[in-house]
Write a protein that binds this DNA or RNA. Sequence first.
RNA 1: GGCCUUAUCGUCUAACGGUUAGGACAGCGCCUUCUCAAGGCGUAAAUCAGGGUUCGAUUCCCUGUAAGGUCACCA
Length: 442
Amino acid sequence: MSNNSKKIIARFPPSPTGWFHIGNARTALFNYFFVKKNNGELKFRIEDTDKERSKDEYTKDIIEGLKWLGINIDFSDIYRQSEHGDTYKKYIEKMISDGKAYISKEEAKEEGQRSEVIRLRNPNKKVVFEDMIRGEVAVDTTELGDFVIAKSTSEPIYHLAVVVDDFEMGVTHIVRGEDGIYNTPRQILIQEAIGAPRPVYAHMPFILNDDRSKLSKRKQGEMVSLKYYREEGYLPEAMVNFLAFMGWNPGGNEEIMSIEEIIEKFDIMRVQKAGAIFNIKKLNWINKEYIKKLPKEKILELILKRVPEEKRAHKNFEVVYPKIIQLIEERIEKFSDVTSIFNSGEFDCLLDAPKYDKILLKNITHIPKLLEIIDTIDESSFDQIGLKNAIWDFATEVGRGEVLWPMRVALSGREKSPDPFTLASILGKEETLKRLSFALGL
RNA sequence: GGCCUUAUCGUCUAACGGUUAGGACAGCGCCUUCUCAAGGCGUAAAUCAGGGUUCGAUUCCCUGUAAGGUCACCA
């Protein structure tokens, strides 16, 4: 590896032609791990030479996504390809005058094709480069021919722009997706033609669909965009952890790791060569692990944001909400689940008395005794433990199912719900007695 | 099709050439207050195939197979 003595400079150069792709986000993350581990610097560049497809909204989405993930790079002075026309022009003209490239007369076969383009004079040699992940890669560039490097002296093709930009930005290490491996030989040829030093390469494996094809929007829908995960209420720490462990791991059994620990342990040589299938279930599990670690106030805040407006506006919501945080927390794996749970009606019984069929109660014979017991419980000990202590022996004696099921249904009106003690403690003594009496009268 | 790459439980992966091939997610089972959820415990599950090299191969080499990628005046 050359450049060992110099400061490592890597780059992340997305083109803003779509929502920030999850695979790109992972590449950005690995670049970040790599530079942080090696006291280097990560530079950001926008490849917006395609004016038709590039949109500011996408640039914004990419930057927001990067910030959300916790990738702290300098966005104040963004290098945009569209602003460096003069630079490319300078190099193109120099290559022509040096005889490294030439203006070629063409027969325009398709619409939009030029009758004159700039082609590189291909030395037709075998290019061998060292890849930090894949080892030595050798490619015969003969079949590339004198490939086009610019449409005109002021309009570079992608490959030329990349090489010039990386050179101008002082890039020493290029960590990019596996598909870049096919671009590398021709980019190396261009580097040699303009006299730029060769950076060190690392080509990362892809994230895959279930059928092992490259992760695509066609097969995964919105799940290919980082935006989706932000909107679904995944925690950025969980996302970073998940993405980091797809294609890399430090070797131990520990899988929940903060970004600091990941950086600390990161070794690009340990990046996997084969692609990894995107496994949403693992992400959900990791996310839940991170939710569990969150301070209570934070959870309270994040959950509240996802409660449907009409539930929040309910007159009982303010009183009930603090009491059901625990309940919600154990039922979600991501914060959008909060909305689904409320919309499913599962918690409606905590806001309003439920409507239900008598049949669901199964057996009301023990309700009078239950009313009697509950009435004796002091307000101060009307919690899960107090309720359980008071009721447990009786329930065990006559059959738990005979007592607890009707009690739970009387309080919730549902076949499935949290347990009766939890329910009663949330509803309070008065409401609990009221609902039990009502069940008796059905 | 040419070229390139890859190959350990269903999935993500661990294993100086010597391990009962380890962990995690998902699955399944049991337990934990009646249901659901959460939690705990446990269980099943893999070295693509065939040849070498070697005392010994998941590991190194070759062939095959499968899968993927890539072949622009797009980025």
